[in-house]
């Protein structure tokens, strides 16, 4: 009975392809676009300055070749120290993150006040950049790797505690209820049910933290907090670009090695 050719044209009834913005969102779009353009201006973007800079970039790079491997043994030793700082900072930071995460996980925290306090500390620690922590610790404990380790510990705390808390919040409530029902304390529930459930994601996060700490550790030396950074700065300051090239290549090698190993470990974990 229904002849398809005679059906009324229903295209008018289709919804719009894109929702029409109301006045408020339209104003917002325009404001955001204007803000971005304003930011570009403030950044003193200049195509001509960039083009003028290209030859000196070329010169700097060409002066780096060939890399000088003369002091490779000393550079190697400092690279090792750098990585050791990263490992220690990560281990301490991860250990510190666990109690903070328990306090900052909505379903584990002993009470509201502790929760907001822990969240606040973690947010503060995370938002202050690692170099600023390094400067702070260089001033307070003096030059050297210890200041770097402390900076990395605090930086790892900011990174890990938040993700640990999230994985604790996601832990299946069933086993936790079972342990509550058999008379377990809060510590028993955390240790017996929450941590085992959160463990894979926490290990993955810790490996990410190690990668992040490795990248951070190579620049901490710039402010005197130990590691390879100071060597790089010295080489640059003394126009020893060949040696600077060697250091940059070693940093590249270390970071790639750590990232690859960590990725492989994480893949095995899943």
């Amino acid at each position: 009975m229904a002849d398809p050719t005679r059906q009324p044209d229903r295209r008018r009834e289709l919804p719009d392809r894109l929702p029409r913005p109301d006045a408020l969102s339209f104003t917002l779009y325009v404001a955001v676009a204007a803000f971005v353009i304003w930011c570009f201006q403030a950044a003193e973007m200049s195509v001509s300055t960039f083009i003028e800079g290209v030859p000196s970039m070329g010169r700097l790079v060409s002066e780096m070749f060939p890399p000088a491997f003369g002091r490779m043994d000393s550079i190697g030793a400092t690279m090792l120290e750098t990585f050791q700082m990263a490992v220690v900072g990560t281990v301490l930071g991860v250990a510190l993150s666990i109690p903070f995460a328990v306090m900052a996980a909505r379903n584990q925290t002993p009470n509201r006040a502790v929760y907001y306090l822990a969240r606040g500390v973690i947010t503060f620690v995370r938002t202050v950049p690692d170099l600023i922590w390094a400067i702070f610790f260089v001033i307070t404990v003096g030059l050297g790797p210890f200041a770097g380790v402390l900076a990395l510990t605090v930086d790892t705390l900011g990174f890990c505690a938040r993700f640990f808390a999230e994985s604790m919040e996601e832990a299946d409530p069933g086993p936790q209820e079972a342990l509550t029902a058999l008379g377990a304390r809060r510590s028993g529930i955390v240790l017996g049910a929450v941590l085992p459930a959160a463990m894979p994601s926490m290990v993955a996060t810790s490996l990410f933290a190690l990668e992040k700490a490795t990248r951070s550790s190579v620049v901490l030396g710039l402010v005197g907090a130990g590691g390879i950074g100071i060597e790089l700065k010295a080489a640059m300051d003394m126009f020893d670009y060949n040696e600077a090239a060697t250091i940059i290549l070693s940093i590249f090698a270390l970071v790639v090695l750590v990232e690859r190993t960590s990725a492989a470990l994480r893949a095995r974990l899943i």
């Binding site: 069933g174 058999l182 377990a184 017996g192």
Partner: peptide
């Protein structure tokens, strides 16, 4: 807690701790 210690609770979903 002491009282709960003497009372077993078995759930529909066993609620064992995985891993």
């Amino acid at each position: 807690r002491r009282l709960r210690a003497h009372v077993g609770f078995v759930f529909q979903r066993h609620n064992l701790v995985p891993r």
